[in-house]
Design a protein around this nucleic acid. Structure first.
Lengths: 305, 305
DNA sequence: ATAGTTCTTTGACTTTAGTCAAAGGAGTCG
DNA sequence: CGACTCCTTTGACTAAAGTCAAAGAACTAT
């Protein structure tokens, strides 16, 4: 069963494309032109991505470059005295690339040029207009990130699932005064197949959030371990996960879902309330629970067809 | 004397560059990749810019291409049956390039692909989130346009100045029930040098707004003909022009500026009020005036240094 | 009519960007 | 140890992107 996605309005698409065209022409082109300066764009980009030293392997993945192509560019930059290539002791197949002092200067200068360019672009705006622009950019950024994140059902034993749960456990261990014991996490079989569900959200290939659904008793599901990576917070991702879990709950023919949460997680409580969850008495005596919530899953809303 | 520009805060610059990097990587790259499809990017872009037929000369200017390069790309597209090259009768040195039906199909398909791509990007957002995004994009677009517009002092007799005044006159002629007579426009010598000032705003090389300052009586200036091209309205450009005129007035040692406006121009009245202009009795008996305003130009605000 | 300018075309290049495959040294796992 | 997998390097290309200059036809101004 496909989730019902509301169609994207042509007006939104048009607005986006309009902006896209304008922005790429005005800013993107200008940016590329300046970034290059006296060096091929490929090399300039490479120089920028190096930062404090990475392996060629890492760069290849990040910039999606051909191995041969990258190898040659690295050699060219080395010949120019901008980078140093070294062999890491733990794996001599790899090459580490790092900036030389000269390379660092080059990057810094480039950064200054870019800063000056942007500053020049913004000078004609008044301070309040700049603030408005900064806010609008932040909103756009946030929503584009959110739009690029995909939430997928994975096996509870999958590597990404366990990685998320580990991060979740570490997170709680730091936030709960009493710490957090990993034995309290769901077992893979509880959230797999007919028993439940496990969702992982991916941003650019990396897992950044998760959520679990398990069977509490017949017809009643329990939502657990809704977690979002610190770098992906405040995007509205928890709600996405929650919505996905509720859809899964309907598919599992649960009519009610429950969940508990800890006193330390005040934002979480607010979110559950906003998402239609009502506070209920304790449905289970749980070590880390101070608040209990429940949501009745109504029948799917009548469709037009 | 340089106008005092408030310095751009590093935070705003950083936010802009951060957004820029993200956007170019996420959207720009994707866009280019899809636009090309089975055709070199240069040709694909060219095909898009043609629209309903332009001269090669025009395209060369717009895309900043080498004449030889463009000529060859055009020939390549013609060989593929996507464009037709014709010689305009009025100047046989030029070549007009226009889409053939096949070319039109190609462009349309490309547009559909891009639309689908964007729609795909937005599907995971909820309808309110999409609306929020669309608003943020519109704000960004508006402010970037405004930031890219430069206001410069020009001679009252300059071609661009007269072009703006002609457009202004035509505009008023259409909006005033009684029409508008061009003999009412300022004469070039009234707004040049010690007598006054004339500003033209340029967006990407094209004049899009103007404003005039002339001497009404010793120490008193009059602001006239503040006009913004329809395509550049609602950007906040009139205020920029007004601010520029007030600076010029201070430089001309006017302590007061006055202006009049017509009953039909309600937005203008609101703007003048918002900019600190107070309504006054008629200071001159003018055919098209129904409202009169005045602003006292204080001494420059005390600076910290 | 003439001189100067404008616009396109063509030839002759160079530089970037990118692909593919073979080869060889290094890890890894059973 | 041996098979397999990884990672980089190198050679051998191709295609796209872009530059420069010369030449010729057509317009414009004087």
């Amino acid at each position: 069963m496909e989730p019902v996605t509301n169609p994207v309005s042509p007006a939104d698409v048009a607005a986006f494309r309009h902006f896209n065209r304008y922005f790429t022409r005005r800013i993107g082109a200008l940016d590329d032109h300046y970034l290059g300066q006296d060096r091929p764009l490929g090399e300039a980009r490479l120089l920028f991505e190096i930062g404090d030293g990475v392996s060629l392997r890492e760069l290849r993945g990040r910039l999606a470059l051909d191995a041969g192509y990258l190898s040659r560019m690295a050699k060219s930059l080395e010949a120019q005295g901008l980078v140093r290539l070294t062999v890491p002791p733990h794996d001599t197949r790899l090459r580490l690339i790092e900036l030389t002092p000269a390379g660092r200067v080059e990057v810094k200068e480039q950064n200054h040029r870019s800063d000056a360019l942007v500053a020049g672009l913004l000078t004609t705006l008044t301070a309040p207009q700049r603030t408005e622009l900064t806010h609008a950019l932040a909103t756009t950024h946030r929503l584009l990130r959110l739009a690029g994140i995909t939430v997928t059902l994975v096996d509870g034993a999958a590597e990404d699932a366990r990685a998320c749960l580990d991060a979740y456990a570490a997170d709680l261990d730091a936030r709960f005064p009493e710490g957090f014991d990993k034995t309290d996490l769901v077992r893979p079989e509880e959230v797999t197949g007919d028993a439940g569900a496990f969702f992982v959200a991916y941003e650019e290939g990396r897992p950044v959030a998760c959520g679990a659904l398990r069977t509490l008793e017949p017809g009643v599901g329990e939502i657990r371990h809704v977690w979002v990576h610190p770098a992906a917070r405040r995007l509205g991702l928890a709600r996405r996960i929650l919505a996905e879990l509720e859809l899964a709950a309907v598919e599992h023919e649960f009519t009610v879902v429950r969940l508990d949460t800890h006193a330390a997680l005040t934002e979480a409580r607010a979110m559950y309330r906003a998402c239609g969850y009502a506070e209920i008495p304790a449905y289970v005596d749980h070590v880390y629970a101070d608040h209990w919530f429940e949501k009745r899953l109504g029948p799917p809303p009548p469709t037009a067809s």
